[in-house]
């Protein structure tokens, strides 16, 4: 495993720890999109169906279990925890899941490496992950007040994908891995979606201002 891949996984893990900290310590999920979190559960469940069938490494299995467990518990807190659920911005988190899930599923049926259940589900999870942040970005845009934890959470999620791009470049040139268009292009799209957010995040950080996205 190269340094970029590890950095990617660690920023991903850190983003989840940050969000769980906000939820468990602050008892708040203000500014967090339940839609996006539910999409992540679908992403992990459909991608990791091979967990019980194929063993890659101890690290790989543990991380998969952590991502599955944490994403499910985040959704549980936001939906059912009697204090946390009161802080959820239900009225502004209106992005419909189906508008993302359906096109991604159709695309996965049409464009995949092999027409098998596991492979189509895996491809679907890549397409869905690429766009799963959209409800969260829409929610941020509608929020007058973005707290630091939420801003940092989204920034780390974007950083995770940027590190994965570097990881693929490294693997291709240094480790002579094959060209893999489906994960590469969906990963590239996923990172590009953060470009606007990155711009305002870094700007607010440089000017020591509170993060605010233009409506």
């Amino acid at each position: 495993m190269n340094a970029f891949r590890l950095a990617g996984d660690m920023t991903h893990l850190l983003s989840i720890i940050l969000l769980l900290h906000k939820i468990r310590a602050m008892k708040s999920c203000a500014g967090i999109s339940l839609r996006t979190q539910e999409l992540y559960v679908i992403v992990f469940v459909t991608r990791y169906v091979d967990l019980s069938m194929k063993y890659y490494s101890f690290y790989n299995s543990i991380m998969k279990i952590v991502f599955l467990g944490t994403s499910i518990s985040i959704v549980w807190y936001m939906r059912y925890h009697k204090v946390v659920k009161q802080t959820y911005n239900k009225d502004v988190d209106t992005f419909r899941h189906i508008f993302l899930i359906l096109p991604c599923f159709v695309l996965a049926l049409l464009i995949n490496r092999a027409f098998t259940v596991i492979e189509v589900l895996w491809t679907f999870s890549l397409y869905l992950e690429a766009v799963a942040i959209l409800p969260q970005l829409v929610l941020l845009q509608r929020s007058r007040n973005i707290d630091n934890l939420t801003g940092n959470y989204v920034f780390l999620l974007g950083a995770y994908r940027a590190f994965y791009l570097l990881n693929w470049i490294y693997r291709f040139f240094i480790e002579n891995h094959q060209v893999r268009w489906i994960p590469w292009l969906s990963g590239l799209l996923q990172t590009a979606i953060y470009a606007d957010f990155f711009y305002y995040y870094i700007k607010s950080w440089k000017n020591r201002e509170k993060l605010k996205l233009p409506a």
């Binding site: 996984d9 991903h12 091979d50 194929k54 890659y56 790989n60 998969k64 991502f67 994965y164 994960p183």
Partner: peptide
């Protein structure tokens, strides 16, 4: 290179 070059990722 191996077949599962992307599948060992998360």
């Amino acid at each position: 290179a191996d077949q599962s070059s992307v599948k060992d990722e998360l």
